[in-house]
Amino acid sequence: MVTSSFDYYAPTSVADALALLDQHGDDAKLLAGGHSLIPLMKTRLAEPAVLIDLGKISTLSYINEQDGGLAIGAMTTYSEIAGSELVQSNAPVLAEASGQVADNQIRNRGTIGGSLSHSDPAGDLPAVALALGAQLTTSSSGAHRTISADDFFVDLLTTALEPNEILSEIVIPALPAGTGTAYAKFANKASHYAVVGVAAVVTVGSDGTCQSARIGITGAGPKATRATGTESALVGSNLDDSAVRAAASHAGDGIDFNEDVHASGEYRAHLISVYAARAIRAAVENAS
């Protein structure tokens, strides 16, 4: 399949990329790993006149320890994240979910910045960013902005990014002592996209009760969201099986469930509670 024609630029610095973005405005699209954008261009659902490839900007690709948490460049690939010992120790759920995206070849190209910016309703990392309380740093000409993951995902394929902004860094705060994390997804058999996916970050006190919980869910509705009903039911509970089940039964509260060829809304509503319970149990297990 052949895409529409476009002009291609491969800037080597963020400043140059931003200047190109300012110059070409709405005609331009940023290209990261290309594994959402190129398929859309092949089917001509996207026909940008200008592509600004971020792939040659080496300063956007890194994983650093920061204040006990992590700072990750937007162009870091799933493979780099899944294989990073630093991510495995400071934000294990991010490594776990990145290793479950699609397949090896796609993980070698797709990026964390592309995944979050695209806000695909079946993408894995938006749920993980919500559960970890990630802070997203954007760059525009002469300015930086920090957007909390809670405010970033606005709607189906829509984020809080302005057209002149590049998502440049993902900051993940340190996990408190006693915290366990886990990702559980019901994957589409062919693509591995999440039919539903749940990321759980749970802090267990020395008395075994839940001190705090952040649950991010994807696949269920038009965008990734936090399961706040589940979170508040968990906090203060003793995290035994019935407490986890009761809390997980709220995972779908308020969601306008997706209906498609992969699953009916009713089935997704069922799955989301099952997978929420699995993710929470695994997170509690990992906390000890």
Partner: peptide, 22 residues
């Protein structure tokens, strides 16, 4: 369509689907 992997090549040492790379 980025699914089957028949187009896989090595790009700087990593396997990639060359139908999804310009």
């Amino acid at each position: 369509t980025s699914n089957c992997g028949a187009c896989t090549v090595s790009l700087n040492g990593d396997a990639v689907k060359s139908c999804t790379v310009f």
